[in-house]
């Protein structure tokens, strides 16, 4: 295997892992308290939300990737951006419908529990918060933070997918299968490997925030550097694994 290709895979996997970690810190996750309407965020775990967003991103990214036969910087940017948009769409719909359920179903106002004034719209938050709770629903600042988080996470996932598909498991490695099947194997291997690396990073970051966060205005966001260092090391090891697999698939040798 070409050392430059190996380095490219490693760097892109690390960057993808760091973006996944950054994304997790920005999405509004409420966990179990949010399911009772007593905390800000969407009522599910970080892993489910971020993995769902990243998988939607991988679907859009893999669809866009079929339009490019040879890898180029333009293709890389377009595929990664389409993954980001797919993840943003998934996150937006989830946040919108979570808000509809909170507002029309539970009858609570989307309000942040961590800040007194919304940092973006400057709307007051505390007067609308039910006493003894930690906020409700997905307020404006969390919504925008969730958008940015999903964008970063989807971008990272699609970046990993693009590099793995074109450099680690290229379709040219499976000549005996025919062009269509070779493309599909290449996409499937890249997609599953990217998803595996993505969840590992997302979960380590989720442990860092202790399961719930409101967005970039949450005090827990300051813990970000600790997760970034851990994720960089774990992604580097995962990247090495993918390089070994790809090296084996190419029959060894340099």
């Amino acid at each position: 295997m070409d050392p430059i290709t190996a380095l490219l895979i490693l760097v892109c996997v690390i960057v993808g892992g760091l973006l996944a970690s950054l994304g997790v810190h920005m999405i509004p996750v409420g966990g179990a308290p949010a399911a009772m309407g007593t905390a800000t965020g969407i009522a599910t775990g970080t892993v489910q939300l971020m993995f769902g967003a990243a998988l939607t991103g991988l679907f859009t990214a893999s669809t866009v990737a079929t339009f490019f036969e040879t890898p180029s910087p333009l293709a890389l940017v377009l595929v990664a951006l389409s993954g980001a948009v797919g993840a943003m769409l998934m996150m937006s719909f989830t946040m919108l419908f979570a808000n509809m359920l909170y507002v029309f179903g539970a009858g609570v106002v989307p309000v942040s529990g961590r800040v007194e004034v919304d940092p973006i719209t400057k709307e007051p938050q505390t007067p609308y918060k039910t006493p003894q709770t930690d906020g409700h629903g997905v307020p404006n600042v969390s919504y925008i933070s969730g958008w940015i988080g999903a964008f970063l996470g989807g971008f990272g996932g699609a970046l990993m997918y693009f590099v793995l598909k074109n450099y680690a498991f290229p379709a040219s490695l499976f000549p005996e299968l025919g062009a269509v099947d070779a493309e599909m194997i290449s996409a499937a291997a890249a997609g599953i490997a990217a998803a595996g690396i993505f969840v590992a990073n997302a979960i380590l970051s989720a442990y860092n925030i202790g399961g719930t966060i409101e967005g970039f205005h949450d005090p827990k966001f300051k813990r970000l550097p600790k997760a970034l260092i851990s994720c960089a090391v774990v992604s580097a090891l995962c990247g090495l694994c993918v390089i070994i697999a790809s090296w084996g698939l190419m029959g060894g040798g340099v």
Partner: peptide, 21 residues
């Protein structure tokens, strides 16, 4: 803090990477 499922998914995340390697 994140629910039990997270660590099971972490295991398969490492598992799929380790298996192909």
């Amino acid at each position: 803090g994140t629910g039990v499922p997270s660590i099971g998914v972490l295991a398969v995340g490492y598992g799929v990477i380790g298996a192909i390697a």
